[in-house]
Design a protein around this nucleic acid. Structure first.
Length: 460
RNA sequence: UCCCCGAUAGCUCAAUCGGCAGAGCGGGUGGCUGUUAACCACUAGGUUGUAGGUUCAAGUCCUACUCGGGGAGCCA
């Protein structure tokens, strides 16, 4: 008999005489004459309550059905006389597919700390909280694709391996097939004997490739893993993380801010509509304010604030910041938090940053002092989105590359786009894990990605 | 990379001034006619992160290291 997902059994609108359910035992409660098994198959947060009576053939295997064991149960889905669940499964047959030694199985019914669960990341999805996180993660990814598809964007598979060593988004991971022990002789090209015959790295961003395709397909987005070899040790950074990077042709900074706001709202709304039960767990145990915050993020317009005004607000605040606020200096974490958590109490988009503190490819504004860049800041998470209108004027871009002290030659293809049919275009990057932190209230990026990669951590 | 805090049973934590290392949960055994973070009784479980030092005596004080957490920088 084919198994039925527990999610579907629990949503049944009628009793069923013969069903088969499979899953992992969360806990067993023995009474005189029968036992209750709580079985979870990952299809939803809730467990299926299974009744195993002493006089049932299922009883023989019960002693092995301990916490963590994989079981298959055949029986009748009947209305539960007890409070707390609508349906329960009266077992006629019980098979323990994979036992779990209760002495050494590390998960117990009671709450574990996130720190401990990180050390058993292979088992943590079997807990309520992590099961919920990764169901939400899957649904949020679906929301991304749905959002862009509905708007005529094409999903661009930007490369993971890249030959450009100068994307300016942070330290890169080197990719090589050369043996460790054989450093190339001095003077020669150290990469000549390597797989690609030149330096290769893992991508830090698909933006440049997305720009190329935006000038052909119009509107595109990338959604995949990116890699940064920064020695960042914070709850908001990982060496491998997923990023969503849309790029629009014939678009300016206002279009860019509109798109970012719409995307965050659509992802939030989608998760609220499709992950109600899982989100509830976070609203109850992780962040009491969660639902109210998400409703505001999904519905209220975001503040749009030129950088110069942000600086003025911070100066007027009378707040003693650890780092002084001044035009020309980048906003510090404490400044960003003040703006969106205390002053406005909602998401804030800061735009038109001083040119000196932003990347070379951002479009120079008419004032020649600022660039058309924007950051979307959200309470608790900080920078969720960073984007800009791109510099489409060849001469200006070449000047900016020179000013940044960079060589123009490796960018020949990037500059070609400005030579042939150049158009105004804009895009941004949204950190997928940071969105998940915002959506669930989880405070550490390592807990919203299945197998976190951070400095000195590559287990699993 | 810098600053701060921490590490005691499988997990979460206690241990007063430096003086016998404990509890809850989890595990095991038994009990209980419907439980649902079940309940009741009994029970096993420890090189106090590692290495050194001070002391009659160190979980407790000192030094170094390892690991974990928080904050900062870098960013998404």
């Amino acid at each position: 008999m084919r198994r039925i997902l527990i999610k579907n059994l629990l949503n049944s609108d009628h009793p069923q005489a013969e069903v088969r359910a499979c899953g992992w035992v969360r806990t067993r409660r023995d009474a005189k004459g029968f036992s209750f098994l709580e079985v979870n198959d990952g299809s939803c947060l809730k467990n299926l309550q299974v009744i195993v009576a002493e006089d049932s053939p299922a009883f023989a295997a019960l002693h092995e059905a301990t916490t963590g064991a994989a079981v298959a149960i055949g029986g009748a889905l009947v209305a539960s006389p007890g409070a707390g669940q609508k349906w329960e499964l009266k077992a006629a047959a019980l098979e323990v597919l994979g036992p779990a030694d209760p002495e050494s199985y590390p998960l117990q019914k009671k709450r574990h700390s996130d720190e401990f669960l990180r050390t058993i990341a292979h088992l943590r999805p079997r807990t309520n909280k992590y099961g919920a996180i990764f169901r939400i993660r899957s649904e949020a990814a679906f929301a991304v694709h749905r959002f862009f598809r509905e708007r005529g964007f094409f999903w661009l598979h930007s490369p993971i391996l890249t030959g450009s060593d100068c994307e300016g988004a942070g330290e890169m991971f080197r990719v090589t097939t050369l043996p460790h022990a054989a450093p190339p002789p001095g003077g020669e090209d150290p990469f000549a004997a390597d797989f690609f015959g030149r330096e290769a790295n893992l991508t830090v961003s698909g933006q440049l490739e997305a720009e190329l395709f935006a000038t052909a397909l119009g509107n595109v987005y990338t959604f995949g893993p990116t890699f940064r070899a920064e020695n960042s040790n914070t709850p908001r950074h990982a060496a491998e993380f997923w990023m969503i990077e849309p790029e629009m042709a014939f678009a300016d900074l206002n279009d860019d801010m509109d798109l970012a706001e719409e995307l965050v709202k659509a992802m939030t709304t989608h998760v609220m509509e499709h992950c109600r039960e899982d989100l509830d767990l976070f609203a109850r145990f992780v962040d009491k304010e969660l639902m109210r915050n998400l409703e505001a993020i999904a519905a209220e317009p975001y503040v749009r604030l030129p950088y110069a005004e942000a600086v003025a607000i911070l100066k007027r605040s009378g707040r003693a910041f650890e780092f002084p606020v001044d035009f020309g200096a980048d906003l510090q974490t404490e400044h960003e938090r003040f703006l969106c958590e205390e002053h406005f109490r909602k998401p804030v988009i800061v735009y038109d940053y001083p040119r000196e503190i932003k990347a070379f490819y951002m479009r120079l504004n008419a004032d020649e002092k600022t660039v058309a860049a924007m950051d979307l800041l959200v309470p608790r998470v900080g920078e969720l989105v960073g984007g800009s209108q791109r510099e489409e004027r060849l001469a200006v871009l070449e000047r900016r590359i020179a000013e940044a002290g960079m060589a123009a030659k490796p960018y020949w293809w990037y500059l070609d786009i400005r030579r042939f049919g150049s158009v105004p275009h804009a895009g941004f990057g949204l950190g997928f894990e940071r969105f998940l932190m915002m959506a669930t209230g989880v405070g550490n990026i390592r807990d919203v990605i299945p197998f976190p990669r951070t400095p000195k951590h590559l287990e699993f």
